[in-house]
């Protein structure tokens, strides 16, 4: 297995190279002059402009810029933002918030989705099942920012149970409502996936054999239905962790959370190549590691899959 993990980790190198290259190319092709933006309305002194361009390597060809970025990235030096702060500082402040938010969202959707999905799958056609199907359909159909604003208004403003916005000094308790909003759509998918999978597994031959052994319904569901049903759900959750981090952009702006989404959004607006590329690189890394984790979880869930 360690051979497999090593192989997969080696594969991340070309992925990172390709991803940074594409991002660099996209940012480079973006119209507008970032330095003019930096000075706003004021006229720019040619000498100062050239100096700044040299400082951020903007005067060099695109390929050289990219290679210089890679060279710095190896030593965790991602350059400075246009306000002069090292990018690594910005990123290391913003990432913990987003990671916490995404993991909380993942936990919420996983627990609620699997529990509700299992019950619905076991009682297919029942009242609970129908209610859950309709609810999940509504959740999938309505855009996420609508839920964000509505829940913020109800729980944050009208009822005052939680702070409507998070702000700079974030804490886990403040993130509960945003995490719920963030995980809502995925919850609906997890629920539906689990429901179908459970219903399908209930009618398999080995479940009938388990019943014939004299196991009670609870034992049958616990050992022979649930574990078998989780395989597709785990695939979805792994890919979803990456999607949650990207989706955080909307949620973070609604609840004013100082996370990666906010950072990336502002950096894109300002054309700050080093910041944008750094943030995206780390997101790519999270994605790659999450999918590796999913593949390892697979092998644990299903002994037929063994990596050599």
């Amino acid at each position: 297995m360690w051979w497999y993990v090593g192989k997969r980790l080696l594969q991340t190198i070309p992925v990172i190279l390709g991803a940074t290259f594409i991002i660099y190319a996209l940012v480079f092709l973006r119209p507008g002059d970032p330095i003019a933006g930096l000075f706003g309305e004021k006229p720019v002194n040619e000498g100062v402009k050239e100096q700044i361009e040299a400082q951020y390597n903007l005067d060099k060809p695109f390929l050289v810029q990219w290679l210089l970025f890679l060279k710095g990235a190896v030593t965790l030096d991602f350059g400075n933002s246009y306000t002069g702060r090292p990018v690594i500082d910005l990123v290391s402040q913003a990432f913990p918030v987003t990671i916490t938010l995404a993991l909380m969202a993942l936990a919420i959707e996983m627990v609620l989705g699997i529990v509700a999905g299992t019950i619905a799958g076991l009682r297919r056609g029942g009242l609970f099942d129908s209610t859950m199907l309709v609810t999940s359909l509504i959740v999938i159909a309505v855009p996420i920012f609508v839920f964000g604003f509505v829940l913020q208004l109800i729980f944050g403003v009208k009822l005052g149970w939680v702070d409507p916005t998070v702000g700079g000094d974030w804490s886990v308790s403040k993130l509960i409502l945003p995490a719920f909003v963030l995980g809502l759509v995925s919850f609906a998918y997890v629920l539906r996936l689990t429901r179908t999978s459970v219903a399908e597994n209930l009618s398999t031959d080995h479940v009938r054999t388990a019943r014939a052994k004299g196991l009670t319904q609870r034992q049958v569901v616990k050992n022979h239905v649930l574990r078998n049903s989780l395989i597709p759900v785990v695939t979805f959750l792994g890919v979803d962790l990456g999607a949650l981090m990207a989706g955080a952009v909307v949620t973070e702006s609604i609840f004013n959370i100082p996370g990666v989404g906010n950072l990336a959004y502002n950096a894109i607006k300002r054309g700050e190549n080093p910041t944008v590329v750094s943030v995206v690189t780390i997101m790519v890394l999270v994605y790659v590691l999450a999918s590796l984790l999913v593949d390892l979880l697979y092998a644990w869930l299903d002994p037929r899959i063994r990596y050599a």
Partner: peptide, 20 residues
């Protein structure tokens, strides 16, 4: 089930849970 009446099912390929 099991203690008074046992069952040997038809298809050995699909009647054991592959995960245990």
């Amino acid at each position: 089930r099991g203690s008074s009446i046992g069952l040997v099912p038809q298809d050995p390929m699909s009647n054991l849970n592959p995960l245990w």
